[in-house]
Write a protein that binds this DNA or RNA. Structure first.
Lengths: 217, 217
DNA sequence: TCATATTTTTTATTGTAATTACAAATTTAT
DNA sequence: ATAAATTTGTAATTACAATAAAAAATATGA
């Protein structure tokens, strides 16, 4: 029981974990106590055997003849994902997208706290978003020294993204969540997660134009 | 030369195409005329051989001893992705996220046109976003009959997402771009592209908490 | 309590994607 | 015009991920 994870786990596996957890959370809300890999297969769209193998990378969370305890497995996956702690986040670029993410994190993602927001636009500097005052981007580095964050979120234009990334790298940030429609270079050891909406939309266009509804992104 | 694509191409390949095209576009802007798979490898992070194999799924776009013509390849990938036509899009849910996407599509994505926007919030209905008036969600179905769209974009809360998806399915939409943090069921033949920000953030947390900077999402 | 149904765990197999290696074509330099 | 260097296209190999099968453990019901 519990957390072996010796060898490196493939990213394919890791990217399925949040979905498992999301579905387990819904089951918890519904009061479901136990679930089999077969039932989880129907809910997730992955094969039962893949689900079992994925989970077994980390430990034997199930019980033969019984299945998985919903609440227990939900907790275990949370631990694996590192959700048993709090992440402080800074949003850079406070346009609609930055604000959307601030709202989202504030209201729906416990464990992820937006602690500071930055922009260059004088019209935005000073205003308060969910109780966080937007600060001048030129002060970001000193602000991050006083109030360090774990995650920097880039919601700027393409042109500013690399500059922001550089400053975040100097600011002792551990991970960057990049929404700017460009690739950025980050320092050694930095965790980078890109959300390339443009690529996603182009992929959607491919499937539409080829009449190929290969569902599930 | 040009567009074989007989057998089904794996989604892994398709999801790399937008990045190739994005980088080729930047090269075009810089005035670069030709490029080798090796140089593309350095720019994309994929191996040169993988790039050659990816492109060869669709045809021999390169020339031995010379490489690829930047503008030509950019155009070919555009054609493969189905970007040689226009896509009409409707945004459902006009909060910050919906507005962010409206702005983004309007200013940066030629070929993708936002033609209508819908919301249930009386404070938003009637206002104009980039010249598009936000309409009452209850009128969406009749609006889509008069002015059909190719793509429906779901920017609502989790709770409303399935209802929106159902109505889009009845509205002759070809593809759904889903930003709601939940899985939705769509009708047969519908193309679905999910952008699960929650899953993306949880994945980022995994790599941070495991000190595993396996760069590139 | 025992036999049977479940259902996970673990191992083996298959299938798919990525890499390597090399032959064929082209360009560049002499 | 010829040789050397470049670079793609593709076949062969390797590595990896997904599936299936076998084995072990537990639960259920008579």
């Amino acid at each position: 029981m519990g957390m072996k994870a010796n060898g490196k786990i493939s990213t394919a596996v890791i990217r399925r974990l949040p979905k498992y957890r999301r579905i387990l959370q819904e089951l918890m809300v519904k009061g479901v106590e136990r679930i089999s890999s077969n039932e989880l297969s129907a809910l997730t769209g992955f094969t039962a055997s893949q689900i079992r193998q994925d989970l077994n990378n980390f430990g034997g969370f199930g019980q033969q003849g019984y299945g998985y305890n919903v609440e227990g497995l939900h907790g275990q996956i949370g631990n694996i994902l590192g959700l048993d702690r709090e992440y402080r986040m800074a949003i850079v670029g406070c346009g609609n997208l930055g604000q959307a993410i601030a709202n989202y994190a504030t209201y729906y993602k416990t464990g992820f706290v937006v602690t500071s927001m930055f922009d260059v636009n004088p019209k935005l500097i000073g205003i308060s978003i969910n109780g966080i005052e937007v600060q001048d981007y030129s002060e970001m580095q000193s602000c991050l020294e006083k109030n360090p964050v774990d995650i920097g979120i880039i919601c700027t234009t393409k042109g500013s993204a690399q500059d922001v990334a550089d400053k975040l790298c100097n600011g002792n940030v551990k991970g960057i969540w990049n929404f700017a429609p460009t690739d950025i270079n980050v320092c050694e050891g930095m965790v980078l997660e890109n959300v390339h909406l443009s690529d996603s939309l182009n992929t959607l266009a491919y499937f539409i134009s080829h009449n190929d509804p290969r569902n599930e992104a």
